[in-house]
Design a protein around this nucleic acid. Structure first.
Lengths: 125, 125
DNA sequence: ATAGGTGCAAACTTTTTGCTAAGGG
DNA sequence: CCCTTAGCAAAAAGTTTGCACCTAT
């Protein structure tokens, strides 16, 4: 794999971004440093990096979002505003993996749990 | 809410379909009975029904898929072929909801867990 | 030197919308 | 009868691809 400027900046952006940016978020963010980068390059690299396992494609509510946090974790998703937060719980991951052992004929590699509900702001409405 | 033929057939199709059909699957399936239905109607109704909570939009790997199974359950997703199976485990749901109580400032309504790995067929490759 | 990547534009795919006609409550 | 919905087509949004040029290894 080649470490081009574009690739490095995209990875860097994802690592520093606090949240789960969409393709456009990544494009706009990276463009601040690499003004001439094309959106196709962003798409191609996000796909490429996800296939290589260097980032994760978190597809929620029909929108592709990305994250560079590779530590197993869960997602808290607000039904109201769509905001996504990470939630780390080794306990829950372990519990799920224990259960996964009972699924016949299927070899589980990873697992994650989604929590759907309302965040502080949206709860008030 | 109006119970039009189109709406009824889409709901019926989802209830009888064994799996997680895409928009196209639904369109092709329903078209066997309602030959003149348009794809826009399928899109609009799937969105509408999902908003009403009569069906669920299971978005996995960037593709919208739908299901009429409203009983809380989990998903087993094959990384190889993309096939999705339901997995019912009240135990796991309860465990997750118990953990959810500790998430500060967030009111969890539902939760589900995804298991990623390889199915029997894909394991062999 | 060269395999693989970039930028750009165009092609494709997927989803939403505006409009008129029609059908359910 | 009225308001929502269907069908159609067109527009918008999202994603991939072909090609000529470039660059990391």
């Amino acid at each position: 794999m080649k470490y081009t400027n574009q690739r490095i900046e995209i990875l860097e952006f994802l690592k520093e971004f606090d949240g789960h940016p969409t393709v456009d978020d990544v494009y706009e963010g990276v463009r601040k440093k690499l003004t001439r980068i094309s959106k196709a390059t962003v798409y191609n690299n996000l796909r490429f990096l996800a296939e290589k396992g260097l980032i994760k494609d978190v597809n929620i509510k029909g929108v592709s979002r990305f994250e560079a946090n590779l530590v197993p974790h869960h997602h808290i998703i607000c039904i109201g505003c769509g905001r996504i937060s990470d939630y780390e719980s080794e306990e829950l991951t372990d519990y799920s993996l224990k259960i996964a052992g009972d699924i016949e004929g299927f070899e589980v590699e990873t697992t994650d749990t989604n929590f759907y509900g309302f965040c502080k702001e949206c709860k008030e409405d």
